[in-house]
Design a protein around this nucleic acid. Structure first.
Lengths: 245, 245
DNA sequence: TCCACGCTGTAACTCAGGTTACAGTATTGC
DNA sequence: GCAATACTGTAACCTGAGTTACAGCGTGGA
């Protein structure tokens, strides 16, 4: 069964015996979601448990006022939807959207909780999985508070181009890249253009073709250099304002 | 035993039978940390499991370059230290600092994992606890990306003044408030001064004495109003630049 | 083939908020 | 009491980055 393969190699089921995985998959029902569609709102996460089988899903917090949004997690095949509710089955103020045509498996949350109680291996895998997701969102918060947009963009690219197999970023529009670093499309475009000029990334028709990992890493850690440069500029008494009346 | 009381009413042990709690507490050893001291670095979280008994602890991500920091969680009595490693026992790039004189209980992580396997009630409580912490950091990331500092400050105050019993913010210096909303001391001071002028908060000697919850809530949701005001200004053709050559 | 749509690139403008600097005010230890 | 320390208040300045506006490009449907 093809679906088993996709699911079994997911970190959510790492080292879980194949029999358990199969019985879990069999008791879930398949769903299909067209690109751009809302898959799960806040309330749904309480009652149902969902897995991505194919396609990409973004888990998003959005600002009700101006419509801006932050993508907390970008999910691919094998990922579970709302990690917090995976453990305690309570609602969360996030929504899930299909970035591609997405196939999922869904079932009642109560069933998931039963499996979690019964299988120690599943528990170990789920704990590790949630721990990982928790670290990811902690990293995101740290990035947002401590680094400016160019560094955050560099971090994003580094994370995804370091390991070849995961192409979750493949062909995402700049709007989605921006949501992943808590910024807006235009700023991403600006920074990508500059990186291109510096030869750090290679762009072709909007898509990112390749990145120079070494120089990207340098860019991500360039804050010190940049702030020293600023100090230098100030010490030299240079001004940049254009207001010479 | 006094410590049992403090621990038993913590959400990490909610509804866990008293006997289990007692046996956990008995097998941990007490520690004492002076104010301002580092309690736990990234590496420690792997091997040891820690609980706050008395005092406040901040869990922090910091920027190695300029020394700025973001407080991910503010812990009080009954809280566990690194939620992610509570589940999977892996390291996390955060550090824990004593905000007051802090007493803790500590033990080997392996012991904790054994209890987690043995007690279903403990598991339920721990799952709920980690879920809550995960939501909190998701909220924080959303706040950082989607709201400006005045709104984030309003959210912080709302969260902590809504329920009387938790006085985790009590007497914290503005520097720490700033770290909680991913900003700097001076900006917090500015916004507090403005809120004071507007009668939203009452300050006395640096400390926040009381807040007008209703108006604070309005402030937290005022973004729409403010952006409409900006649109209005622009429509009226007003300019604020001072460069008239 | 052509139009419509959604994407990207770029320029000009504005402002929130980070930065530096310094003064005022508690609190503590001696 | 007084120096030392650590906190808060305020002002002036500067920059990163969000906003608006618009042009160019590529693809898919009619």
């Amino acid at each position: 069964m093809r679906i088993d393969d996709a699911i079994a190699k997911s970190p959510l089921f790492a080292h879980v015996d194949r029999q358990t995985v199969s019985s879990i998959v069999r008791s879930l029902s398949a769903e299909s979601h067209p690109e751009g569609r809302l898959i799960m709102g806040a309330a749904d996460s309480v009652s149902s448990f969902r897995l991505v089988v194919e396609g990409r899903v973004k888990i998003v917090r959005s600002n009700s006022h101006d419509g801006r949004e932050l993508t907390l997690w970008l999910l691919g095949p094998g990922d579970g939807f709302d990690v917090a509710s995976l453990l305690d089955g309570r609602p969360h103020a996030v929504t899930a959207w299909a970035l591609d045509h997405v196939r999922t498996l869904a079932g009642p949350m109560a069933l998931w909780r039963d499996w979690l109680d019964e299988s120690r291996l599943l528990r170990l895998a789920a704990h590790r999985y949630v721990g990982q997701k928790l670290r990811e969102v902690g990293d995101l918060a740290g990035d947002l508070a401590l680094h400016d947009t160019s560094v955050r963009l560099a971090h994003l690219l580094l994370r995804h181009f370091r390991r070849k197999e995961d192409n979750l970023l493949r062909d995402l529009p700049q709007r989605e890249l921006a949501a992943l670093i808590g910024s807006v499309r235009i700023v991403v475009s600006r920074h990508l253009a500059q990186m291109k000029r510096q030869g750090i990334v290679e762009l072709r028709g909007g898509a990112i073709r390749s990145v120079d990992l070494k120089r990207l890493l340098a860019e991500a850690e360039s804050e010190l250099a940049r702030s020293e440069a600023n100090v230098g500029r100030k010490a030299a008494g240079l001004r940049s304002g254009g207001c010479e009346s």
